[in-house]
Design a protein around this nucleic acid. Sequence first.
DNA 1: AAGACGGGGTT
DNA 2: AACCCAGTCTT
Length: 356
Amino acid sequence: MPKAQELADPDSPGSAADRLLAWYDRSRRRLPWRSDPGECADPYHVWLSEIMLQQTTVATVGPYFQRFLEKWPTVEALAAAPLDDVLHAWAGLGYYARARNLHKCARTVASSHNGVFPDTEDALLTLPGIGRYTAAAVAAIAFGRRAVVVDGNVERVMARLFRVGEPLPDSKPALTALADKCTPTARAGDYAQAVMDVGATICTPKRPKCTICPIVDLCAGRDIAETLPARKPKPQKPTRRGVAFWIVRPDGAVLFRRRTESGLLGGMMEPPSSDWVADAEPETAPPVETIDQTPLVGTVRHTFTHFHLELAIHHCRVEGDTEAPQDARWVMPDRFGDLALPTVMKKIVRHAMKAG
DNA sequence: AAGACGGGGTT
DNA sequence: AACCCAGTCTT
């Protein structure tokens, strides 16, 4: 494995950074949040896109990014929005703490920084939802500062380029150190995007396209690229079961409730359901008094980060004067679109509407 | 240091 | 259907 200290100066011609930048200039992908060559990127756009891109693919983020910018063209506009509107616009993107922190961050920037994003990594790092990766990415891409930007793409490129056999996450510090050695001072933002683009389009997790890689001749791991980076085995997911209640009033309104602010799907809307339990039979009592209760055929399945969920759906009818419990409300079907429904809850709605 | 936290893509 | 991917916050 090439020693980091033997690497070419990243600011010198022929270095890996130099060649990645040349490749980037030739093949630059046009993305909604990316500035034109030579133009300055808007920090608000860079920040918004980077938060959305955490754990999420470019293709998924595209339409969400456009809609957010149409609704909230500036960070002040986003700060002025009600949290529920932001959660509604975020619905389907997942990791809803990102949306809550996005909103909190916008409010902090608007109220404590005069609506201007701080331009240093350290200052960015203090903001809600901005961690090491995002602070470095925004500092580099929006402000042109040299910063060591390390996401999953960069980890993979470094692990292969330097043939790092140690599995993640133990190898993370070593990969970060290697990324540091490769990072140039000039064109920091373009370089960060160049490495991440190579990782996303050429140095892919499966079937890497080494034949068209701009730095394949420098790559110590090219013969075993697909096996890198190694990862520690992950524990398998348990299955939890529950019952979701599709509770319908005579006028057609359906009962929805808002989940608690923190935790899984925090702040999002849902049809009421039992607790989701791993090693017991779920409760089948609905949260209101009902006229009748019929289990629907089939189940709704959904997989979260750390467990599988299997939900039975019970169709319930109630009297016309039934009051909605605390945190719940009656919603007519033509207003379902107004609700901040995460994907699993949309599956429940589809299942209940199809059956009922 | 370890676990919580979605959803989409690939095989 | 099973597996893969992966930043930030909390505990």
